[in-house]
Design a protein around this nucleic acid. Structure first.
Lengths: 139, 139
DNA sequence: TAAATTAGCTTGCTAATTGCAAGTGGATAT
DNA sequence: ATATCCACTTGCAATTAGCAAGCTAATTTA
């Protein structure tokens, strides 16, 4: 059921088989930048994902090794979703999409400094965000 | 009908509203790397896009200014699709997806040199591919 | 300690989208 | 003149998306 169907052996196509939809990268974004890590956190995001779609996307992302479930330190009722290294490695992709979008959409308040940093020293930004995301893993 | 619905003002979300599906970036890829620029070229790609889906994606990409139609120099029956600068600027996104995918999928024959170049001198590669794509525009 | 709320889902149903197959109409090759 | 190519459109079945409601276990509130 959950197996991924590869349409071709093209790297881009295989990648889109995993995260080429309107929701998966938004969940990754929430985990990366918005301090969201529970089911209800994702549900509350501005785009308004439907609960069944969220469940299916979380399942897909987990099956493909981009995220993983773990115990929530604060409550046994909650499940903590975390990025794996494989998920964290999508950071450059997400940054490049932002840099593209910056030219064509109005920039939301607050992210301008990060965009500026991305343009000034992209590698440094990736390294520093990656580092802090990786630290979250080993908690 | 053709208007884009923005789910939020997040740059990533707005971008995915445009190309966040399983086909749009593959059409861009074909235009960028595979010397495909007619309807039937796209139809023949390995992933096997359905003809009605192709028509709707081409329409969407055109409405969003990523591609444009023009006269085919060889035949009046054909339509030549071309990337606009806005479409060409997606090159870094596509490269980053490739670099991510390289770690998790078997690498198709032929692209290894380009991947190596992307890792060695990313900016140079982007600049050189962009240049040749831009030259295509003014023909 | 009982009742209400929170958290993470599942289920049922409807609407929208996808994808296959066939068809259309103009341009081109034979 | 006929057949084929090209860029689609249309019809229809199947899949997917999305809304609303429900469900179970854990937790908070009264």
């Amino acid at each position: 059921m959950g197996t991924v169907k590869k349409r071709s052996n093209c790297l881009l196509s295989s990648s889109l088989d995993i995260f080429g939809d309107k929701w998966s990268l938004l969940i990754i974004r929430d985990l990366m930048f918005n301090n969201k890590n529970t089911y209800n956190d994702f549900l509350k995001s501005a785009e308004g994902i439907a609960t069944n779609i969220l469940a299916s996307r979380l399942k897909g992302l987990e099956e493909n090794g981009l995220i993983e479930k773990s115990e929530h330190p604060g409550s046994r009722a909650k499940i903590l979703y975390r990025l794996t290294p494989k998920g964290i490695e999508l950071l450059p992709v997400i940054i490049e999409i932002h840099l593209w979008a910056e030219k064509y959409f109005t920039i939301p308040s607050g992210i301008e400094p990060t965009l500026k940093e991305a343009k000034k020293d992209r590698e440094a930004l990736i390294k520093s965000i990656t580092k802090s995301l990786m630290e979250n893993i080993s908690l």
